[in-house]
Amino acid sequence: MTTSGLVPESSPRSARRGADGDYPRLLRRISEAGLMDRRPGYYIVRLGLVGAAFAGGWAAFALIGDSWWTLLIAGFMAVTFAQVALVMHDVAHRQVFRLRRPAELMGRIVGNAGIGLGYGWWQDKHTRHHANPNHEELDPDVAPDILVWSQRQARSSRGAARLIGRAQAYLFFPLLLLEGLNLHLAGVRALRNRSVKHRGVEGALLFTHFALYLTAVFAVLPADKALAFIAVHQGLFGLYMGCIFAPNHKGMPTLTGDERPDYLRRQVLTSRNVRGGVLTDIALGGLNYQIEHHLFPSMPTPNLRHARLIVRDYCAEIGVAYHETGLLSSYREALRHLHHVGAPLRHPDELSAAG
């Protein structure tokens, strides 16, 4: 197991096993508080506002036309695309619809067709993440692709991860400017995977989005402004998406091998909450209550902040570390961790000795 030293009170390795009764007791308290109940009114308003912002952004883009002011619209649309992605996230977790079919239908519409993000690919990846958060072999979000998430990964890294890992704490936010493009490409690459359901529909919606997006941009703007618009829009979209998800688990303890704490500890000890008010809740889509979201994935987003008090007190009662911090502190913790785990790559003598 690799830890960042941020949660000294407890760790997945030292967490007592055989505590499977802890989660049912917590779930009972949450259910009795009515926090698993649906919130249709909230989602009607939220989907309406996000939809209006999405349509309004494109309308403003068309009205402003051939002007460098359109780059402001690109920034606005980056935020809107990320908010659409957060809606897709809630839909995929059955927070909006109880049944699978309407959830998948809306997920593909808002994801594939709306913002060019492959719903099938993302749902498969995100499901595996929820089952084993921060497990180096089982969680795709901590796979050593471009970045490394533990010194163990650093010592065995190859290619881009070996090169970038040396300075990854400094490169993290600049690299997020490419995350939007990476999300689009990942959805396209996943179309070759037979495990993705309805690949024909997924692909048709994805490529329809790309075609309409590029047609609209180049029809309204000359080439130089069009390319600038795409760069600003996609770059800020990726940056914002990364800033939403980075505080959740980065820098928290990681698991390896057969390290499998019980469900409650597996979710709580690897997750971080971010304190803040209404603006933080809106900006992060409620994912700042990451501990509660991981414990109760189908809980409607507006109920998470109420569940926080119950979960925090319960964790104190049973002696499980519950970690929360401010937004800027969460980034500092994540960057400090990235710098720490990259140490073997900055010291070749240590790396060769380990090999």
Rank of each mutant, 00 (worst) to 15 (best):
S4Y: 05
V7D: 00
S11F: 02
R16G: 15
D22A: 15
R25G: 09
L27E: 14
R39S: 08
Y43N: 15
Y43H: 12
V50T: 06
V50G: 06
A52C: 01
G57P: 14
A60H: 11
W68Q: 02
T70E: 00
M77V: 03
A82Q: 11
Q83P: 05
L86A: 06
M88E: 14
D90I: 02
D90E: 10
D90L: 00
V91P: 00
R98Y: 05
P102Y: 11
E104F: 11
L105S: 11
V110S: 05
G114Y: 01
I115S: 08
Y119K: 07
W121I: 00
W122Q: 06
Q123S: 13
D124E: 05
H129Y: 03
N132W: 04
N134H: 14
E137S: 08
A143N: 07
P144E: 09
L147Y: 03
V148Y: 01
S150T: 15
S157R: 03
R158H: 05
A160N: 01
A161F: 00
R162N: 02
L163C: 01
I164L: 15
Q168K: 08
L175N: 01
N182I: 00
N182Y: 05
L183C: 02
L185R: 06
L191M: 04
H198I: 05
L206D: 11
H209P: 07
H209Y: 09
H209V: 03
Y213H: 08
L214D: 04
T215H: 12
T215M: 15
A216S: 15
F218N: 05
A219Y: 11
P222R: 01
D224V: 07
A226Q: 08
G235P: 13
F237V: 08
G242T: 10
A246Y: 04
N248W: 01
N248G: 11
T254F: 09
T256D: 14
E259W: 10
D262S: 07
Y263L: 13
Q267D: 04
S271L: 04
G277T: 13
V278E: 12
L279C: 09
A283H: 01
G285W: 04
N288H: 15
Y289E: 05
H293A: 10
H293S: 08
H294E: 07
M299L: 12
L304F: 09
H306E: 07
R308H: 15
R308V: 02
G319E: 05
V320M: 12
V320L: 13
H323Q: 07
E324Y: 08
L328V: 04
R332S: 12
P344V: 11
L351P: 08
